[in-house]
Design a protein around this nucleic acid. Structure first.
Lengths: 332, 332
DNA sequence: GTGAAAGCGCTAACAA
DNA sequence: TTGTTAGCGCTTTCAC
């Protein structure tokens, strides 16, 4: 069972010391061109690849690994973020370790500890609901932590990248109002506490701005996924004085609302936070709040590397812009 | 700048040797309960976390890291696979390193080398097009490689997990035929050479099975994304004798086809490989080939860990079943 | 039941 | 320009 060649093997073959091999591998100057050539040859012959784990064991050396924790690796929103992080990470010679918390605080904490045991140089998380006071400076010795999408507002402050949730919701709801709607139902997904409540605030301030009194019976809060939203939609449509349009705080909810409309046969204009595919193919006009999720990942990663490269100062919060777009209804 | 505590620190505090700390950390027997307690205390006090990189440096020790390479981390198909891998990995105490090849062979190779330098214990890849003969047993010393979605048919054989592409396409096209269609256009996405051609074979054998002679002018091959497929759809619809239904070899293409139909105002029943959201909300009936992408990841990861745990024998190919479903058209 | 010594593969400091 | 020595944090002999 032949094992991977080491610097020692290369050194023997090239008849130099391991240190010289190290110099060549690291492109250090002050190596005789001929010596270098011999070493390069030996490396090629043996197919030598430096062991990064051994390398990063030396103090002062980095692991060139960053860690990411999101609620669900399989969720397109999170994977778009991962993609953005990976893009920037690659530019810096970094690899990304990623895993899912399943939105469970305990799992999230465990995951972060595991990532730290693997010596990640930095951490990016989309925090699950729950207490994050365990994220102490001691635990995170020299490891910058970036918070994405939902700020952590407890004890310690961290660099943060979020969307303009309130503004986006405001504009989307305002678009409905400008289309003539005054009774606008709303269904809030609660799984993301922060984003949900920010978007609800946008909804309310749009109503207020237009001089519309919000009506409690049109406001449905705390729904988890599509099927719950579907039932909430039924309720809303069976209201004695039903809304003439609906706002959904995210695209999971929006899909549920659409199912609900399909089930009842009552099609109402829809607005929601998050774009989604085929929104332009529906029998109702759909107003969406769009943004670049990969850009969230890139921004966060860039900030992380800035910290790694010595950027000092107070934690920063970056708000990424969103855009509102309305797809007209398709009639078949 | 305080750095992370080491076993040495714990040992000093607990007044034992590092070896004893190691025993406690690794739950080895033969440690005096009182000693153990002292060590546990010291670990808690210092917040000690074992350094996994140092640990896996010892021969025979594993890194508990696996690596994954796909074409695009942000693509929901790949991220569903990643999710499946992560699920199984977690059960085995493994963390997942993942990155995107951007479907570029050179990048893929570079990525695999980088992952190996980081001492991954196993590798899972969705191979990009191109030559993979560089994946030699020497390069992969003791590192099992699992191939997902598109087999590698060159020199070396690897464990492989794929979908029943041909069968799925056959059934989807057959569904169109049973609905009365005999002129069925097809648009093939070529980015995934293997899956595309397998699905085309399914298309042709469905026609043959129904006694329909395929017509070259209804077959459009080698389109990359939605916008190209949109143009191909225009062509098809402007055909002197247009098809009465269209089959798309993947959901990217299907979305393009739908845009094309929307543009021309001619709505035709559609079938495609891959399910997609809101397929049930369209003005045409949509037949989709569905499957569990996360299951591909899980299957692949399970096979990988079986290899890591000593499973011997010839490389295995596993075909995952698919299902066909038809969504009726919605009329508004 | 516990510890001392050696070494995994690499690089920093210092010599030659 | 090159090599020697030491040691990163851990685990593995093998003593005691």
């Amino acid at each position: 069972m032949p094992s991977r060649p080491t610097m020692h093997d290369v050194a023997r073959l090239a008849e130099v010391s391991t240190k010289t091999v190290s110099r060549v591998v690291n492109d250090e100057p002050r190596v005789d061109p001929l010596t270098r050539e011999r070493v390069v040859q030996a490396i090629a012959t043996l197919g030598f690849q430096r062991n990064e784990q051994a390398r990063s064991l030396r103090p002062g050396q980095r692991s060139t690994l960053i860690g990411m924790v999101t609620g669900d690796l399989g969720n397109p929103f999170y994977s778009a973020i991962a993609r953005g992080i990976d893009e920037v990470g690659r530019l810096h010679g970094y690899l990304l370790l990623s895993s899912s918390s399943e939105e469970q605080p305990a799992r999230e904490r465990q995951l972060i500890e595991t990532l730290l045991r693997h010596n990640v140089d930095g951490l990016l998380i989309v925090p699950a609901a729950g207490d994050h006071r365990y994220l102490t400076p001691t635990m995170l010795t020299d490891v910058p932590l970036l918070v994405i999408d939902r700020p952590i507002t407890e004890e310690h402050a961290f660099d943060t990248v979020v969307l303009e949730n309130r503004q986006g919701a405001f504009e989307a709801v305002t678009a409905l109002i400008q289309a003539g709607h005054r009774r606008i139902g709303v269904i809030e997904g609660d799984s993301e506490v922060y984003t949900g409540s920010e978007r609800m605030q946008g909804y309310f301030s749009a109503l207020k701005h237009a001089g519309i009194t919000p009506e409690a019976s049109l406001v449905r809060r705390g729904f988890h996924g599509g099927s719950q939203a579907e039932r909430a939609t039924h309720d809303l449509l069976n209201h004695p004085e039903p809304p003439t349009a609906i706002f959904a705080t995210n695209n999971r909810i929006a899909v549920g609302v659409l199912s609900g409309m399909k089930g009842t046969g009552t099609w109402l204009p829809l607005a929601c936070f998050d774009d989604f595919e085929l929104a332009d193919m529906l029998p109702v006009p759909v107003t969406v709040v769009t943004y670049d999720a990969a850009e969230m990942g890139r921004s966060a990663a860039e900030l992380l590397f800035a910290r790694l490269n010595g950027l000092a100062g107070e934690p920063v919060t970056k708000s990424l812009p969103v855009q509102v777009h309305t797809y007209p209804a398709v009639r078949s």
